[in-house]
């Protein structure tokens, strides 16, 4: 089976000489379809840098990123943008919805960018939001939505272009426990089980261990696999 994402000995170094910081140091990671990989670690351990390289937002200093079997090397900015648009769905802690657009339009906008427009995009957005329990909030702007609703809109946006890989940065970080649980159920059920996507979650939230297939620990730029049952604060 072809991996959705492979990171091969990926390293990211910031600065040089005495100010050099190895944020990520020789990391290997493979994500298969239908798999949820949870990456945990202390603040400043390099989680965001790792997620940014996985999401093609940052180039590694060394090592390879392979997305859907394609080695990412020497691609132009617009080629990387096209890959992000179609191959990767992003879910952020701060939701990052566009404030001027309604819930439906926030989902439509990524489809429009990918060339799906008009009624087709509108129907798909309504269908996705309906599936996520937001059929009654289609025309509401982010300011009028609760945190959980905003995150569900963000998830719908991440799914809109049928991206096989979802990268989630602290998806439950801003949510209360009940809403956090709902989002976990969505990530586990709707995204993985029903649609077979691969999901990489970066989080401090220990509850997410329940839904993860694998738990990885990142500290000082080094990634290691952890037993799901083992305590994670060490």
């Amino acid at each position: 089976m072809e991996a959705l994402l492979e990171l091969n000995l990926v390293t990211k170094v910031y600065g040089a000489g005495r100010t050099e910081v190895r944020a990520v140091d020789g990391v290997d990671l493979r994500v298969d379809p239908g798999e949820i990989v949870l990456i945990m670690g202390p603040s400043g351990s390099g989680k965001t840098t790792l997620l940014s390289m996985a999401g093609l937002l940052l180039s590694p200093t060394d090592g390879d990123v392979v997305l859907g079997g394609r080695r990412i090397n020497g691609h132009s900015g617009s080629e990387l943008a096209a890959l992000r648009l179609r191959q990767i769905g992003f879910v952020f802690q701060a939701y990052n919805l566009l404030g001027a657009l309604t819930a439906r339009e926030n989902v439509e906008v990524v489809m429009n960018m990918a060339g799906r427009k008009g009624t087709a995009a509108r129907r798909r957005a309504e269908e996705l939001l309906g599936t996520l329990g937001l059929a009654h909030r289609l025309d509401h702007k982010p300011a009028d939505l609760s945190g959980g609703e905003k995150q569900r809109v963000a998830i719908a946006r991440a799914l809109a272009n049928d991206a096989p890989l979802i990268l989630a940065d602290e998806p439950t970080g801003n949510l209360d426990s009940k809403t956090g649980r709902e989002v976990m159920d969505l990530l586990c059920g709707k995204l993985r089980c029903e649609q077979g996507r691969g999901i990489v979650i970066v989080s401090h939230d220990h509850r997410l261990v329940e839904i993860a297939d694998r738990v990885m620990w990142l500290e000082d730029g080094k990634l290691s696999q952890r037993d799901k049952a083992a305590p994670l604060n060490a």
Binding site: G55, S78, A81, L85
Partner: peptide
């Protein structure tokens, strides 16, 4: 700026 950065992250080209 943040919203433009979001658009850039999720796949909008600079031209767009």
């Amino acid at each position: 700026a943040r919203e433009f950065a979001v658009l850039k992250a999720i796949g909008a080209t600079s031209g767009r």
